[in-house]
């Protein structure tokens, strides 16, 4: 039995310790918004926050998570009200949408660390793959979310 802290809740999971956190979230806990894309940490579809840091979970054994606070897309906000989600709504960023949970989590982590990122900050931080080519709206969305955050502070 392993104890995990997911979206503010403590839960016990009975899985092999080498199981990647991705599959524990999706299948054991039932939080399917974090998605599987490549299984090698290359695409970022599986990105969640571990103690606020964007982390790719398809290659992270659940036994390595320890007591870190896990935040998934479901835990980012209850009503799409996180500034990144607001900006994504304004700009209609998603196309197929499959990568967007990971994109949003990566963008939220970037903004938490760097509230007013430059284009080159965004270039460096946003390495998630989008096969639909939503990149320009993702970039605009991050700038927009930065302004939304500024306004609420």
């Amino acid at each position: 039995m392993l104890t995990l802290n997911v979206n503010g809740q403590t839960m016990e999971v009975d899985v092999e310790p080498d199981t990647p956190l991705l599959w524990v979230l999706r299948e054991t806990i039932g939080l399917a918004g974090t998605r599987f894309g490549c299984g090698q940490g290359l695409c970022g579809a599986c990105t969640v926050h571990l103690d606020g840091v964007a982390t790719r979970t398809c290659i992270l054994p659940v036994s390595d998570v320890g007591t870190a606070e896990i935040t998934t897309i479901e835990g980012l906000s209850a009503d799409n009200s996180h500034p990144v989600q607001q900006a994504w709504t304004e700009l209609d960023v998603p196309q197929c949408g499959y990568c967007q949970s990971g994109q949003i989590m990566a963008a939220a982590a970037l903004l938490a660390e760097n509230p007013l990122p430059s284009d080159s900050d965004i270039d460096a931080a946003m390495t998630n793959i989008c096969r639909c080519g939503t990149y320009s709206r993702i970039r605009k969305g991050i700038h927009r979310a930065a302004r939304l955050t500024e306004r609420t502070q």
Binding site: I73, P94, Q100
Partner: peptide
């Protein structure tokens, strides 16, 4: 489809 695609739902 945007709301469901940004909530993970």
């Amino acid at each position: 489809d945007t709301p469901a695609k940004i909530s993970g739902g």
